[in-house]
Each structure stands twice: as C-alpha cells, then as structure tokens.
Amino acid sequence: MLTFRLPVGDTVELAVDWTEANFGPLLDIISKQLDFLISSLKNALLFLPPELFIAGIFLLAYFVGKRNIKLAAGTAIGFFLIENMGLWTLSMETLALVLSSTLLALIIGIPLGILSAKNTTLSRILKPALDFMQTMPSFVYLIPALIFFGLGNVPSMIATVVFAMPPAIRLTNLGIRQVPKELIEVADAFGSTSWQKLSKVELPVALPTIMAGVNQCIMLSLSMVVIAAMIGARGLGYQVLLGIQRVDIGMGFEAGLSIVIIAVFLDRITQNLSPR
C-alpha cells in the first residue's frame, strides 16, 4: 500500500474554495434568480385560499386523469387532509421547491439528453458523470451547495437539481435513440430540416419515454425534501427533521404523510400527461 495518503478530499476542498473565490459574484446572481423563482412560485400557490385551490386541483386531476373521478376525489381528499392538519403553508413551500427544482432539472436535462442522443461523444462523456451523480449519496451534494450558496432554499434546490437531473437526461437520450430508423428516414426522405425532424418526429415519438424521465425527476426531487431541509430548506422536510430532533412521532408522521400525498398526486398527474 502507499505510504502516503492521496489528497482526494483536500483537492476537492481546494477546488470548491477556488470556485467560491473566483465566481462569488456570479454565484450571488444565480442565487438571487433562483430564490426569486422559488418564492414567486410559492406566493402563487399560496395566492388562492385552500378551498379554491382544492377545487382547482380536483378539476385538474379529473381532466388530466381522463375523467377518472376516483383519482380526482382522492386528490381532493388528500389536500383537504393536509389543510386540516394545519400543514398547508409548509406544503405549498415544499411544492414550490420541488416544482422549481424539477423545472430547472428539466430545462437543463432534456436539452442535454437531446444533444447526447445526437452526439455519441457527448453521451460517452455524460454516462460516467451521470452514474456518479446518481450513486453518490445525496447528502454529499449538500456540502458544496452549502458553501456556494449558504443556507436556505437555493442550495437545497441546487442539490436537488443535481440529484434529480440524471433520469431526465438518460431517458430523453434513450427515447430519441429509440425512435425507429424508418421514421427518421421518413423525416429525411420528405425533406425535413433537422429542427423539423426533431420537433415533428423525434420528440413526439420519444415523448412517452421522456415523460417517464420527467416523472422520475419529480419523484427524486420529492425524495430530497427531507435531506435538503438539513441545509435550510423550509417546508415539510424541515417539519420532519424537527419531528426527529424532538422525537415527536405525531409531528413527523403528519409531515411525512403530506409529502406522500403530494408525491402520489404529482406521480399520477405526470403519468396521465404522458401519451399511451
């Protein structure tokens, strides 16, 4: 064995310090933008009184769920329960964080997926990076996020995006690569431009696979809620954390149940949005 210790940890620390020192102002700008995104979304969600919101969500579930009254009713009851347990504001905060993280993950992930489907070199580079991102314990992302962005919603969101993005990239890439060769030939044979080929053939055909990626992305974001609370994310995750700290089973359970309700709701909606 080597007699000296390889400075892996030290090197990473140095790199993080260096980034912090050189890109500080840029990071501040990013931080402000993201914070604005999250709080606007939160305010929008909280703008409606809970009763109206529940009515709206009932209709949404009803129509998106192809007129499935059970799904709609279940959703309404779930959100009613959240309101009843007094967790409405916290839930909306969590929902805002999850949705904006997912949005960011998709905005980065889907184009990256498309590019890597078109460019084999890129996909070869991305593959180990994605493996790394997915297998690294999610807690580890908290540290650089904390250093770059301090405590609060923004570092939580960054950590969540990093953790939740890989399936969006992977499944977009896969979906586009799986478009049957004959359909690509159709696009070419009729004289499509690359953009027409992508928008009229590849993306629509790959849509079910891409939507599966979106679904997974949302679920992974939700799974980060409690972990992200450790670096200052507010909302239900923080409530669970408090429950653990205070050994308050009731408090932890209620918050946990609310997360489950939101998760099931988002899962069903995205599944129903995907064609076929």
Binding site: F190, G191, V205
Partner: peptide
C-alpha cells in the same frame, strides 16, 4: 437536396413508418 426530396421524390416504406401521434 432537401428541395429535390420535397418536390421530386416520394417514398413508401416496408413497415409503413407512420407517425402514430398524428
């Protein structure tokens, strides 16, 4: 090439190759 394909050449495929989202 695109112009010629659009105006002069039509193609029919063995397995139909239709776009099922349309």
């Amino acid at each position: 090439l695109r112009r010629v394909r659009r105006v002069k050449l039509g193609m029919v495929f063995q397995n139909f190759a239709l776009l099922s989202h349309r």
